[in-house]
Design a protein around this nucleic acid. Structure first.
Length: 315
RNA sequence: GUUACUUGUCGUA
């Protein structure tokens, strides 16, 4: 059974869940009973496939086989339900889990908290924080990051920064994600100077900015129409050996398009194509909306056909 | 032996 479980997981990780399922059938034929681990692996496999239906189907099969879901089963399911925005259902499973005397850990709470935040329900997220404390669990850096994300998204930067300070009170050290979230919040609201300052602060504290940090700063500069500043950062990223990916390029590209700097935009696009990892759906969407806004329907249609050929999904 | 939660671009009715 152990050997099968390992194999099944291997195929799941490989994205070949169908074959993993076949293997499960094969092990049954050999008289080996799938255990809770086998089921969890398969459920997780289908979840990674985005196939919630099949995941639930396996889950039911597990119940039918008389196996009792454990903490791991619940974590997998709850996370997937949250991803699909079925937060109510996720909560139902959570309650069921508590009802069957399974001791929750940081992960389940963080998953649920993040689920509520993604739904825009900060109240419930905060209530869950209290609940987690009631279970003797102390919110950790990830919990705080999720909350900071929520507040920043709502535009409540004050509260986001207050939480950053509160972290120290509880002996938690803000990490690169914490800083990235705050920098992102500042940039989104046009506070590029403050964002740059925060970037300096993190460096002085020994936290190394990553490509998220710099991409957010690029975004901030673009938002203030400082394309040259944005390009400076692009160059600096390359010098630091950070990969400049399609996201960073798209941001600059979009700004160039918006400002009707068509020539420079095309130059960038050519360079992106040369480095050939850079033209994606988002790039196309940017171009499309640009054309549509300028009533260049012909070009828009042409582009749309090009997308269809490349089998990118028009979204 | 299986699960591991939080951050970046367009869009998301």
């Amino acid at each position: 059974t152990v050997a099968y479980n390992v194999l099944i997981n291997g195929f799941c990780l490989d994205g070949n869940v169908g074959y993993a399922l076949k293997l499960c059938g094969q092990m049954i034929k050999q008289g080996l009973a799938p255990d809770i681990i086998t089921y969890n692996t398969l459920i997780n496999g289908f979840c990674g496939d985005g196939d919630l239906q099949k995941a639930c189907w396996i889950y039911d099969g597990m119940l039918g086989a008389g196996l009792v879901p454990d903490l791991i089963s619940y974590k997998i399911l709850i996370r997937e339900l949250c991803k699909h925005r079925y937060i109510k259902k996720a909560n139902t499973y959570f309650q069921q889990m508590l009802g069957s005397n399974i001791i929750p850990d940081h992960f389940v709470f963080n998953i649920l908290i993040d689920g509520y935040i993604k739904e825009g329900n900060m109240m419930e997220a905060l209530r869950l924080c209290d609940k987690m404390v009631a279970f003797g669990l102390v919110p950790n850096v990830i919990t705080y990051n999720a909350l900071i994300h929520g507040h920043a998204k709502e535009g409540n930067l004050q509260e986001a920064f207050r939480l950053k300070h509160e972290m120290f009170v509880y002996g938690l050290i803000p990490d690169v994600v914490t800083y990235n979230l705050l920098i992102n919040g500042l940039c989104k609201h046009g506070y590029i100077l403050e964002a740059s300052g925060l970037c300096d602060e993190m460096i002085s504290k020994g936290i190394v900015p990553d490509k998220f940090t710099y991409t957010e700063l690029i975004f901030g500069h673009c938002k203030r129409q400082k394309i040259d500043k944005a390009c400076e950062i692009l160059i600096m990223m390359q010098k630091k050996g950070l990969c400049v990916d399609n996201i960073a390029c798209n941001i600059v590209f979009r700004t160039l398009c918006k400002r009707k700097k068509t020539e420079e935009a095309h130059k960038l696009l050519e360079r992106m194509k040369k480095n050939d990892l850079c033209v994606d759906n988002v790039t196309y969407n940017i171009l499309l909306t640009g054309y549509l806004k300028e009533d260049k329907l012909q070009q828009a249609r042409k582009l749309f056909e090009e997308m269809a050929v490349k089998e990118t999904h028009a979204s």
